[in-house]
Amino acid sequence: MYRYINASDNTHLIKDEPYYRIKNNLDVLVARLPSSKVKEVLFGMVSKVYYKRYQVVLTKSESDTEQLLSTLMATIIEQNLEIKRLEQIIL
């Protein structure tokens, strides 16, 4: 089970600077989302992607912007994979 980026029990991430840089860069976007449920879903997806694909996110990123873009691209890929999986279940 993964933890949300903004969860209060993320003590295991205290030294994970890239994780917090991603969170800080997303704060502006998240502040504009309409509901707490939408925010929770976004943070949940980003957190899951970070744990699953952290090597890609970190090795391909030399700046905060590249790191954020890598994270968002990985999130979009994961989202598309999940959509395909759900479509196969339905069909």
Rank of each mutant, 00 (worst) to 15 (best):
8 S>V: 13
12 H>N: 12
48 K>Q: 10
69 L>I: 07
56 V>D: 07
60 K>C: 07
62 E>T: 07
59 T>F: 11
26 L>W: 04
85 R>S: 09
11 T>I: 09
90 I>F: 01
29 L>T: 00
24 N>K: 15
21 R>N: 06
50 Y>N: 02
20 Y>A: 04
77 I>P: 00
90 I>E: 15
32 R>F: 01
29 L>M: 08
68 L>A: 05
35 S>Q: 07
59 T>Q: 10
57 V>G: 02
46 V>G: 01
48 K>F: 12
86 L>W: 10
41 V>M: 14
18 P>F: 15
5 I>C: 11
2 Y>M: 05
42 L>R: 06
58 L>S: 05
89 I>D: 10
18 P>G: 14
33 L>N: 06
28 V>L: 08
63 S>F: 14
12 H>G: 10
68 L>H: 09
52 K>A: 12
39 K>S: 10
52 K>T: 12
86 L>S: 04
42 L>C: 06
73 M>H: 03
72 L>E: 00
39 K>T: 12
29 L>K: 00
70 S>W: 03
25 N>H: 09
38 V>H: 12
38 V>L: 05
51 Y>A: 04
33 L>K: 03
19 Y>G: 07
52 K>E: 09
9 D>P: 15
9 D>F: 14
71 T>E: 02
71 T>Q: 03
88 Q>G: 04
26 L>G: 03
81 L>E: 02
13 L>E: 13
15 K>G: 09
31 A>Y: 02
88 Q>E: 13
76 I>L: 04
82 E>H: 06
68 L>P: 09
18 P>V: 15
91 L>M: 11
90 I>M: 12
80 N>H: 10
26 L>K: 11
55 Q>F: 14
55 Q>C: 01
28 V>W: 12
29 L>R: 00
9 D>M: 06
39 K>F: 00
17 E>R: 09
7 A>M: 09
78 E>D: 04
72 L>Q: 03
70 S>G: 08
82 E>F: 08
7 A>K: 13
51 Y>G: 10
41 V>E: 13
12 H>C: 10
13 L>S: 06
8 S>P: 15
44 G>S: 07
37 K>Q: 15
51 Y>S: 08
83 I>G: 00
91 L>D: 13
46 V>M: 11
65 T>Q: 14
58 L>M: 13
83 I>F: 14
79 Q>N: 08
14 I>Q: 10
72 L>S: 04
18 P>D: 15
78 E>G: 02
44 G>W: 04
47 S>Y: 08
91 L>T: 14
55 Q>M: 02
32 R>K: 05
37 K>T: 14
7 A>Q: 13
55 Q>R: 05
51 Y>F: 15
70 S>I: 02
88 Q>F: 04
43 F>V: 07
22 I>F: 11
15 K>P: 03
